[in-house]
Amino acid sequence: MSDLIDDIIERHVNIDRDGLIPLLQEIQSSQGFLSEDAIIRIGASMDLPTSKIYGVATFYDQFRFEPKGKVHFQICHGTSCHINHSIRILQELERLLKIKPGQTTRDGMFSVDATSCMGACSLSSVIKVNDTYFHDVSPADLKEIIEKYKSNPLNA
């Protein structure tokens, strides 16, 4: 796993600071999240302080700093879903799972992210659980969805 990070950093060697975000994106898509170790290694290779890299990464919603859970919830936060109260879905999910966006439950089962528009505005509010989309979701539906995935995390 660690070698993969080194391979990616190697491919981005001699980049300027403006190449930082593509590098972070590539590491995230390979590892699923940005670990402390990865950020420290990027800092060493680019001669950048980790505080600056962490600052850039936390500025954007797309980066996570904890591994994803087996069941990963993505709550659409686009305009249409927002108007259809997607914030309530997020709040209910935070209440049920006791985690905030970007976090993972301690047992490594669930994780939550708020994302930008998924492009299914006519079906809002939309959420995505692993690779499955759910449309016209209301906060009341969440309990059922969670229970379903709890018994079988790989349920499609």
Binding site: E36, P49, S51, K52, I53, Y54, G55, T58, F59
Partner: peptide, 26 residues
């Protein structure tokens, strides 16, 4: 911390009204 001292311990973390200032990885 960055320009005068040169150790860059403190940085901005997060965005908008949730921004805080702290060391790496908060």
């Amino acid at each position: 911390c960055d320009e005068i001292v040169g150790v860059c311990t403190l940085g901005f973390i997060g965005r908008g009204n949730q921004t805080i200032i702290g060391p790496s990885f908060n």
